[in-house]
Design a protein around this nucleic acid. Structure first.
Lengths: 153, 153
DNA sequence: CCAAAACGATTACAGCTCTGAACGATTATT
DNA sequence: AATAATCGTTCAGAGCTGTAATCGTTTTGG
């Protein structure tokens, strides 16, 4: 039972959001990926050439955590570290062709996931939901496209 | 960046939900509680007398995990284990008066949290959001009042 | 009626992940 | 040139979780 009856928006949001995240994790597990890996891959694709520290700041995780994550993607050839000639301390992150192909498969999975989650809503209702959530996200200072949960998972 | 542009409902839901959960965790931390403890306390209050195994099944966590959780609440006098005379293997869980008092404080915190999260929405929009989320929750088979994320946090 | 299987709660243990500090390499500062 | 700061990485320690063994109790079945 929730703390309020009926449950408030915040509790519903957290519960449904956690469910959505769990189901998405199941789907991408079929591609041998975890949600943080997917988030990182997407971020590198969207803004290539960033240093690891910059990416770590955006994602809100300690740089030491990012190392293993980048390793796991680089080992599979989805991402590569390129040495910056101007400043050889930096490792610029870039997506590979294989990474882009994987991202396409992920996009397909994400779309299926989206459809299944919202199957009880018609298109107008889905649009309403997206709009309300986007308003909350903007108001609460969430960076578009960054999943706060990747911090701890 | 998300996998789709603009982001789909599922991604927004997971992101905003994780944010809501994180902010709620901060708020109840002021009461020296964690979200799983809050969820357990609420469940015991709503359906008193249940065995630990029954509660563990409802929350979707292994019974061994519940032991420490119940301990932490029992140590603070918010909950008590009562021996069942008919079957002395079972420990029926009951909330105490202090537990009820704490639950009242939690309810206040939850309400403030709710208000802050939805401050960019008017009352009609909040009701719309609640309705849409409740539809998804029901369709996806989520038990009302049970937070799936408590499984792993 | 008694031995054995089943069941609930607990504990012990092993594996995992995360955090924070330390380190080597490189660059900026003075 | 020497020192401080920055980046990526590694490493040890802490915390947490699930699995399996344990103990007491109850049910089952011969």
């Amino acid at each position: 039972m929730p703390l309020e009856n009926p449950p408030g928006s915040a509790f519903l949001l957290a519960a449904v959001g956690a469910h959505a995240a769990a189901r998405f994790a199941e789907r991408v597990a079929a591609l041998h990926l975890t949600p943080p890996q997917v988030g990182l891959l997407g971020l590198i694709a969207a803004e290539p050439g960033q240093s690891q520290q910059a990416v770590a700041r955006i994602l809100g995780m300690p740089p030491s955590r990012l190392v293993g994550l980048v390793d796991s993607l680089a080992d599979r050839g989805l991402v590569e570290r390129r040495r910056n000639r101007a400043d050889r301390r930096l490792h610029a992150l870039h997506i590979t062709d294989e990474g882009r192909a994987m991202l396409a498969r992920i996009g397909k999975v994400a779309h299926e996931h989206d459809d299944d989650l919202c199957r009880s809503l018609d298109e107008g209702e889905r649009e309403t939901l997206r709009a309300l959530l986007a308003r909350i996200a903007a108001d609460q200072g969430l960076r578009p496209g960054v999943h706060p949960g990747y911090r701890h998972l």
